[in-house]
């Protein structure tokens, strides 16, 4: 039974360096392939599809969704879920529009909106952590609360006439090649870069992954899991509020029925972007590409003309299924 002791250094099967593409990158690569493929199909079929401006429009039309998906990625990485994001977007547009109408300065409005979103996130995170109620239920309540508060402010749509907001909304930045983008796109990209920095280069970010991988292990390792578990909901709330501000720039109005069901788009983008809903696996960049895939499908269907908009939903559903299946296969293999 006793195996002969091996001399140190020649450590048999241990010494192998694994040098294949790690399977955790596969879903993200798949997302990217899907994006290139859909965009390629569009370019092949329609003249003018493969232009820089169509690409830029993808970002312009989905800037708010990118921000939401970034926040959602944090939550999903810990194994949670945030159903409140769509309603928080609506609430943010509503607060912004109402406050601007009341004559508040733009900078104050921005601060108030961001604080409100983060505060709601903090409250939800606290309840989830402190009372052990499922995130699903707590954020569902948050979704109702935020949507209800919109109606408390106003049932009608409130348009935004503040010059600062108008300037920000209509202002455009010209890139080389005659392509223009909005300030919203810049903000979204800044958020993406900040999120990548936080997730990959800070202790908080790595703890997010650790909690998603195994919360009990993370706690045994002495990591501050409480801070992370509550923190991700604050981040998601902040991103929802910021997404709401971008959305209010995009629509130039505040309305209680804005962004209905947008939480599903955000979740779909994250899943299509290769994150596991059970937590621990995923990348912000994947979620961004996920948003772009959803956006491209929408653009494709609008270019097609004869294809009706409901195909978008069916295709997104099919994509979700495909990525869930892909994840299952990868999980089984390892």
């Amino acid at each position: 039974m006793t195996p002969p002791a091996k001399p140190a250094g020649t450590s048999g099967g241990f010494g192998q360096v694994v040098s294949k593409v790690p399977s955790r990158f596969l879903p993200v690569i798949a997302t990217f392939v899907v994006f290139v493929a859909t965009f390629g199909v569009g370019s092949a079929r329609y003249e003018g599809f493969a232009s820089g401006q169509v690409m830029a429009n993808l970002f312009i039309d989905n800037a708010f969704l990118i921000v939401l998906a970034v926040g959602m990625t944090f939550v999903i990485l810990t194994g949670g879920i945030d159903l409140s994001v769509g309603s928080v977007v609506a609430l943010s547009t509503m607060i912004a529009a109402a406050a601007l109408q009341a004559g508040w300065p733009a900078w104050l409005v921005v601060i108030v909106v961001l604080a409100a979103g983060s505060g709601l996130g903090l409250a939800m995170g606290w309840v989830i952590h402190r009372f052990g109620v499922q995130p699903f239920i707590v954020t569902l309540a948050g979704m109702f609360l935020a949507r209800g508060l919109c109606f408390v402010i106003s049932v009608e749509s409130v348009s935004i006439k503040n010059p600062t907001f108008r300037d920000l909304a209509t202002g455009s930045i010209e890139l080389p090649g005659g392509v223009t983008i909005t300030y919203g796109v810049v903000i979204a990209l800044v958020v993406v870069i900040a999120a990548m920095y936080v997730l990959h280069l800070t202790r908080f970010g790595r703890t997010v992954y650790a909690v998603g991988g195994s919360e009990s292990s993370a706690r045994l390792m002495g990591l501050s899991t409480t801070r992370v578990k509550i923190g991700v909901y604050v981040i998601s709330g902040f991103c929802s509020a910021l997404g709401g501000l971008l959305f209010s720039l995009y629509m130039l109005s505040g309305y209680s029925l804005h962004a209905v069901g947008m939480e599903l788009d955000a979740i779909a983008a994250v899943v299509v972007g290769g994150s596991l809903l059970s937590g621990g696996v995923g990348f912000v960049i994947g979620s961004v590409v996920g948003v772009l895939v959803l956006g491209t499908i929408q653009t494709l269907i609008s270019f097609e003309g004869t294809l009706s908009s409901w195909w978008t939903k069916i295709v997104i559903g099919a994509l979700l299924l495909a990525f869930i299946a892909l994840q299952r296969i990868i999980v089984r293999k390892t």
Binding site: R203, R206, T207, A210, G213, S214, S216, S217, L220, M221
Partner: peptide, 22 residues
């Protein structure tokens, strides 16, 4: 009791990673 979704280095040093400018 480690996090299998992280790298070997992270699992060894999580919580006490060497940091530079934060």
């Amino acid at each position: 009791n480690l996090c299998v979704n992280l790298t070997v280095a992270e699992n060894i040093l999580l919580g006490r990673e060497p940091r530079k400018f934060g």
